[in-house]
Amino acid sequence: MNAPIRIGVLRLADSAPVIMAHRQGLFARHGLETEIVVSPSWANIADGLAWKKLDAAVIFCPLAMMTALGRRGHDAFLRPLTTISRGGNTIMLRGVNPVETIWHAGSHGRRAFDVWRSSIGRRPRIAVVHIYSTHLLILRRFLKMIDVDMESDIELVVMPPVDMIHALSEKKIDGGCVGPPWGAEAERLGVAFRVGGSSTVFPDHVEKIMVTSGGLSCSEEQAQAMTLALQEAITFCQTPHYQQDVTAALAAPLPAGGLALPAEATRSVLPGGSEQEAINFVAGALQKHDIEWIINDMVALGWLENSEQQTLMRWSASNTMASAPFIPL
């Protein structure tokens, strides 16, 4: 294979390991020629994987699963290679926080929600980045924790994270659940306050994973090389000592191989940063407990059939023998 391996990422701080592996030549050292494709939308990532425009991507589990099941038109042979990151999502709202802390489970949170809602004066419009996102599952669980029903008590909207900041300041939306560094950036700009997030809803939940598609999924040798390169990059990104290097790489402009992320907010969400919802970069196979809750929540939302649920459980390493070859869906 002479064509470079095309890896899709979005402009998010948890894309860091792929950016660093590419920039620092870790992929090349493992014999892989790579090309980073910065995608404007999650739909582009999913369609890229399904229609042979991407060989791999950094993605969240729900969308990867729906894509593998053929929701983009035809089945895509996706293989989860390694986890990339855990946690990092922020739930933020505009206006004034009536309790000056994050919102705790039960009546404390419910009361805060009611006071805040009446100050907003409408059924709150809360945004997520994609319908099949971890963000939606985390938001739904958060609302459930404070006894608020996602279906009836709020209006759910979907928009890109960068647009959310603008929409919050224009009062077009009232809140959002968003990935790093956009929650920290919204707070820094003073357009929203944080009420919860990954750490309060499901500490250390798996957030981004690396999946391969098509031919790359079938090549054991390349999959292994890519896993090793990513492991090294993930260790690098997880080391607080390199926080500045990673920040500089992510803040670099797109033509220079960066993601043009806001530097200050990005630094604060990287390991060693000051943010409560900082990212944890962790490599490793998906475990049963990583995907069980995701699949259960997806079933509860009516996205999956029972048979599909069984199929998807095969994504966890603990469900197959370690030495057994990967079974395509």
């Binding site: 404007p40 939308s41 739909a43 369609d47 983009r72 319908i131 979907v158 928009m159 890109p160």
Partner: peptide, 27 residues
């Protein structure tokens, strides 16, 4: 145009099954 970042919202129309959207659209 696939360069649009707000295409993701179109994916949500069916999944959210909003009553306001009487004629759901899909890719």
């Amino acid at each position: 145009d696939m360069a649009r970042a707000d295409r993701d919202a179109l994916d949500s129309i069916r999944a959210l099954s909003q009553p306001a959207q009487e004629r759901p659209i899909a890719l």
